[in-house]
């Protein structure tokens, strides 16, 4: 799911725009990109390294109660 570098700045800005963020605010985008690459992306990469074969996602809603 991830290469060495988690996401290019260009791809990041594309996603930011698609999410409705103000990409014209360059200093904020720089800060956000730095935060993402330093604090979020490494964790996502760590997730990629887990063996999740035959493991389903945890879901909070239990229909048997309704």
């Amino acid at each position: 799911m991830h290469d060495e570098h988690p996401m290019s700045k260009e791809a990041f800005l594309g996603m930011a725009e698609a999410s409705g963020l103000d990409v014209e605010d360059e200093s904020h985008m720089d800060e956000l990109y730095a935060y993402y690459t330093q604090n979020v992306a490494p964790g996502l990469k760590a997730l990629d390294e887990l063996d999740l074969t035959d493991v389903e996602p945890a879901m909070i809603y239990n229909l048997s109660k309704e």
């Binding site: 956000l32 993402y36 996502l44 997730l47």
Partner: peptide
């Protein structure tokens, strides 16, 4: 508050597949 805004917005860059990977890891 800028640090809170940054934390909230950074979650917009987590894909659906990555979120579900995390929920699978949570099961484990």
């Amino acid at each position: 508050y800028p640090p809170v805004r940054t934390r909230i917005e950074s979650g917009l860059f987590i894909t659906a597949a990555e979120y579900l990977q995390a929920q699978r890891a949570r099961t484990l």
